[in-house]
Design a binder for these strands. Structure first.
Lengths: 199, 199
DNA sequence: CCTTTTCTTGACTGATCGGTAAATTTCGGC
DNA sequence: GCCGAAATTTACCGATCAGTCAAGAAAAGG
């Protein structure tokens, strides 16, 4: 036996950042070698193949980034929750220490039309789960009497998912950060306005 | 002299559809050969190189698809305009005769972090122009007294751009078409609600 | 008809792609 | 200390990438 000389978690994070920054196709094994400091065969030995590395990166993004964002929805007050939700989204998108944009949006765009749909299926599930979390949040606020019984949870969830993905696309280019900031500021106000009436 | 045996406009359209469907990287020259029915050298002879083909495809998308969408904003009534705007967007995204999703969103995601930024610059300009068209529309409605003087044209434009891009991402996978439909239905109502108050 | 110009065709380049086989090093177990 | 197993390194594989070269085919101009 011989212990691996690298930390697996750290390596997965580096792989995630590489895919996040360059996308699936443009992240060649060479790029992953440079990003992780490992040699080709060490990567294959540890993770299998490129698709498996992408899946791990996707999982890690889900755990480390997405879940933190959606945790803001746990707040009992929908106004505060949605304000924090979009603030957290903005923070991710403009954080200079992280790659620009969003892993999920980028991957979805690039992999959706692939003939072999293993990876796109994984991303689709992620998007569906996020949508369901939003629906659940609105249903919870409904049950707690925080918002009207008539509110369309499905529609609102779908709408917020759209805003989320769109901000991720625009946040990809630093030139559009101003647009993302304005959008992130206005989005919760629009929704609040719709839910609770003006004031 | 000898006349080319193919119609240039038709060929550009086929090239556009290929890039639209597969993205930049995944659309190899082989794919373009199959899509256009032309041989390699004919393509290079007619268009120069791959990047030039992508630029032409991008231009054509702008002319043929985006402009039609933004033309709905010309209507004097913002309620009708925004309703038609999102209806037109939905129509593009769910049209089975066209590739799924949106050329602009896909290209922006894939090319934004390229070292050589020729193509991403072109897409950034496109996004900026669309944003400006939205701002202009709101300013016009303001001047006509259709919406409040206090309305934040910049913010609303930024917000709508986000929704637009996000719907394009979600529309990329046919599994998410239900989400796009709900989002496209709710978006204009939310904005209208915000602009004119409930009812 | 014949020449000339252009388009078309098919073979080819060097680079890079994802993935693998075999050699070499390094370490834990005895 | 040495042996064997696992990690690392180096070299390589066929396939495909964007782009090119040099012939062959076809049409316009005379």
């Amino acid at each position: 036996m011989r212990a691996a000389s690298f930390d697996r978690e750290e390596t997965v994070e580096k792989i995630m950042n590489a895919f996040w920054e360059h996308g699936y196709e443009a992240t060649s094994i060479q790029v992953l070698e440079a990003a992780t400091g490992l040699k080709r065969q060490s990567l294959y030995n540890a993770f299998g193949n490129k698709d498996a590395m992408f899946e791990l990166a996707n999982d890690r993004y889900d755990m480390a980034v997405s879940r933190k964002l959606f945790a803001t929805l746990d707040h009992a007050d929908p106004v505060i929750a949605l304000r924090d939700f979009f603030a957290a989204q903005l923070a991710v998108l403009v954080d200079a220490d992280q790659p620009a944009g969003c892993f999920v949006s980028g991957g979805q765009q690039e992999l959706a039309n692939r003939p072999e749909g293993q990876l796109s299926e994984q991303m689709r599930v992620m998007i569906e789960e996020q949508h369901d979390q939003l629906v659940a949040a609105f249903e919870r606020w409904k049950a707690d009497g925080k918002i009207s019984e008539d509110a369309d949870s499905q529609g609102l969830a779908a709408f917020i998912m759209s805003v989320l993905r769109g901000q991720a696309v625009l946040g990809r280019s630093s030139m559009s950060h101003a647009i993302v900031e304005k959008s992130a500021a206005l989005a919760p106000r629009l929704i609040q306005h719709y839910l609770t009436g003006p004031n």
